[in-house]
Design a protein around this nucleic acid. Structure first.
Lengths: 209, 209, 209, 209
DNA sequence: TATGAATGAGGTTTCATTCAT
DNA sequence: TATGAATGAAACCTCATTCAT
């Protein structure tokens, strides 16, 4: 491994550390309340250093969403590759969202944040493109499954992209909402069963007949 | 009408004007980017005046969500009272969300924002209580329909509160998500058909058999 | 009594009510923290009305000091008229300050406030003149006693005006200081004995031999 | 000197610069009228920088009083260590206050301000503790002198702490008052002789017989 | 005379971002 | 590359004061 590659890898590593610190702080405080200084301190770096790796606060925040989009895309692809029925795959997609939620419950809020006009308008074209790409990847795998299902007559006859959107949105939305109810009610045990039920309903609704 | 009542009504009117101005500005700019000065200027008032009617920026913003929660609760109640089948009611609930979305597409984002931990933690108990109340009202009407459906064997056997949550969350989430795709793609005409499909899927998933 | 006199008297009465309310609020909160709205509310009037009687907040605050200066002048005059020895009069002057302090412990702070450059520079000439006048009256009576004492060889040979200043300042300063120690220590019973001792010391120091 | 010490010293230096600027502006304008922007500009810094060194305006202001309390404590200790009679020490204490007054005539006003309830209630516990500490140090030295004097039968038999309070308060109060008369009368030369007389009176009053 | 809603200037404070070291 | 002190713009919010009624 040449010196350039090593440096490159160290740089990549440092970036990951920052993202991890950022996730911790953004999760805890939310976008507005979190400060760059806190994130720097969590990453055991100085504020200035963050700006060597990220153009500004917004893009640091966005990188969290990109990271998770990548992760979701990967996990969904794994489900697609499994040797199970299409219906089962649809249900497993839901479990991907649950896993993401359990890893960091604030992350889906970030995803929705990201999509809000306020945020989108302030992003650089480059980052916007990244989001579109990874988003498309994650969706793409879903679309494939659905398209297959339609062709085999297992799923209802609708535009597969629209169906993938619906799947994605309702899964993400439900996780988000159920989580917010948990915040309001301070009880936690209903979260997972409710989500399971939700995914069953959606997948049932998708089926032909 | 006495002088007291007139004054009271004027005051109420003024509050509505402020809320309208706030909606316009928050929609356009989002919570952070919007400034109180802009809102005041939109309402043709001075900044200080806003604070005679709302304790701070946060509560002004929240009042938008409360307003819409009230509206949703009303509309859902209207659907409940209609002389149509339970299945149809479920689908009409979706149309309530579409109507809200068409009235002001940013408003559902507010609702999700509102439920995020970041916001909830900064709210006064009084306002928090209001949110819980209206939220409960809106859900309550849904729960009634679902409970009836379960008893009549039309809907699947699950906890009706959980089902209402799922319904609400997936409807709101889908509207939100589909809207964000519109923002990313700059095309609009797929929004409504996609939503319609979504609601059909959910309501189908709810049904017994 | 003509209608003009009655009106005049009512006006005077209203002014006293405002001053009383102002004293209560300023005592409790201090000059900066107190608001005109609070004072108005305490006086069961509207904010605007205060401005019919006082040019601004500063002058309303100053009027408290003028009021107390008048009061001190009166009380000191009473001591002067008593049929007691000059030495005793000097000690009784101290009791006047104690009485003022017991009536409203914040009032001597006001007096010192008043004399600070910050305040003096913002006062109208008219009010400034009033202060000088009443201040001179209060001092005048002291000066008379001291001048007599000097002539009778009871007090030390110094400029009587200077001695009166010293008397006034040390009495006021001690009351103020001892009160502030009370605030820091949350104990109260040492205040009066300490003051008594203080006055004894001063009056002893004044004496010839 | 290592790099850490240099930085530490620079930081200390910067703090002193800010305090100096603050003293100048607060002296000239008083607490309310002075603005942080003015102080920053006087220190040739930006407003934000002040907040790196002081939590808020109140604590910056208070730091002036703490500084002077320290100074007074030192100077009084020096008097205590001098090889002069106890009576002389008492008179020299007065000169400490005169010197402080001549260094910055507004500073004793700050000290009295500080002790007023309005200010004390808004101070952090930490700062409050500092004030108590330095205050106690300054008083402590006075108390020692007085206690000696009582034991030697030179001073009157009273609680030495109370006597120190009286000494402190009358000295500070007199300086303050005499200064305010200067402001009202626009003449200056009577200040020092009056103060001298005052201290003579007090110290005479303290003496046994 | 009294009201009290409205004003709007201006203050404190925060914090993303920069840049000399 | 990393630092972290300094920046300074800009936001929120307060409240003394005014003025139409």
């Amino acid at each position: 491994m040449g010196i350039y590659e090593r440096k490159q890898r160290e740089k990549e590593q440092r970036k990951i550390e920052i993202v991890n610190a950022a996730r911790k702080v953004f999760s805890h405080k939310g976008f507005n309340t979190a400060t760059m200084e806190e994130i720097a301190s969590e990453a055991e770096l100085s504020p200035g250093t963050l700006y060597l790796y990220f153009k500004n606060k917004e893009e640091l925040h966005t990188s969290l969403s990109i990271e998770i989009l990548k992760h979701i895309a990967d996990e969904i692809q794994k489900v697609v590759n499994q040797d199970i029925s299409l219906e089962e795959k649809i249900e497993r997609f839901g479990e991907v969202f649950i896993a993401v939620y359990e890893y960091d419950s604030s992350i889906l809020i970030n995803l929705f944040h990201l999509q809000s006009g306020e945020t989108l308008q302030n992003l650089s074209d480059e980052v916007l493109q990244q989001i579109k790409t990874y988003s498309a990847m994650a969706h793409g795998a879903m679309v494939d499954v659905i398209r297959d299902g339609i062709q085999q007559g297992v799923f209802i006859q609708e535009h597969p992209v629209a169906l993938a959107d619906i799947l994605w949105a309702s899964y993400a939305g439900i996780v988000l909402w159920v989580d917010s109810k948990r915040l309001l009610n301070d009880q936690k045990d209903f979260v997972k069963p409710t989500l399971k039920t939700a995914f069953k309903i959606i997948s049932k609704g998708l089926k032909q007949q």
